[in-house]
Computed example of a mutant assay.
Amino acid sequence: MKNTFRILLLSLFFVGCQQKIQPTDIVKINGYWEIEKVVFDKGEDKDYKMNESYDYFEIANNKGIRKKVKPQLNGTFLVNDTDEKVNVRFDKDKVYLDYGTDYAKWSEELIALSDKELVLKNTENKEYHYKKTGPINLTGDGEKTK
């Protein structure tokens, strides 16, 4: 009985500590995000040590785009003309990013958002953990990157 009570109390603690994302927090999504790991629905993780591409978000007034970009060693990014339209949707206590292209539509739940962390969960219950990142400049020429 004691163990049941402890588990219940611990569960309530974690539910109570879950971040509530406010409309004013959405601006934190803007910028470059590098995936760190994927947590699958059965609890196993897949870590990403190095990424060839980042996700770039640009959202204003709950509408915007997400684009895949490839960082270059001189601090620039390779970018193509393909992007996904993004709409931010607030539904009860949850926040969703609704995506759309000419070929598909899908949604991800916004689980966590801070200046340095972004966690999204898709319909297959996979959690994508991102860290905020920026340009890479290994040329050592001292020039500022864009």
Rank of each mutant, 00 (worst) to 15 (best):
T139V: 05
N122I: 09
L12R: 03
F13D: 13
K121L: 01
R66F: 10
I111E: 07
L97W: 07
G64Y: 05
P23M: 03
E143Q: 15
N122D: 13
K131S: 02
L8F: 00
D93F: 10
D115H: 08
K121N: 03
V15M: 15
L97H: 01
E143K: 15
L10N: 07
T24K: 15
K20S: 13
M50C: 06
L10P: 04
F90C: 09
V69D: 06
K46C: 04
G75D: 08
L118H: 02
Y54E: 01
E124G: 10
R6E: 15
L78E: 14
F40Q: 12
E127Y: 00
Q19H: 03
T139A: 01
M50T: 05
K28V: 01
E124W: 13
E143L: 14
N125Q: 06
T133A: 10
R6T: 14
L78P: 00
D41R: 02
D47N: 14
V88Q: 05
K116Q: 06
N87R: 10
E108D: 12
D25Q: 09
G64T: 12
S53A: 13
D93K: 11
N62F: 10
D93L: 14
E44H: 14
K126Y: 02
Y99D: 12
Q18D: 15
D102I: 14
E34D: 15
G100W: 04
D47H: 11
N61D: 15
E34H: 08
A104M: 03
K46L: 07
Y99E: 15
L118I: 04
N3E: 13
D91C: 06
F14I: 04
F90T: 02
K94L: 07
S107Y: 03
D141Q: 08
K132M: 06
E58Q: 12
I59R: 00
Y32I: 09
Y48K: 14
K144S: 03
E84C: 01
V95E: 14
N74I: 06
Q22M: 12
K132R: 06
N30S: 11
G100M: 04
T145N: 13
V95M: 12
K37T: 06
D47S: 14
K46H: 07
Y103N: 10
N51T: 05
Y103K: 09
K2A: 12
S114I: 04
Y103S: 11
L8K: 05
V15W: 14
L78A: 14
K126C: 02
I26S: 00
N30A: 13
E52A: 10
W33L: 06
I7E: 15
I136S: 02
G43H: 08
N122F: 02
D115G: 10
G140H: 07
K67T: 04
V79R: 04
F14P: 13
N87M: 12
V27F: 11
L10W: 11
L8A: 08
Y48S: 11
N74E: 15
N87S: 15
N51S: 07
T145A: 13
E117L: 03
M1G: 07
Q72W: 00
T76R: 03
D45Y: 15
I26M: 06
Y103W: 09
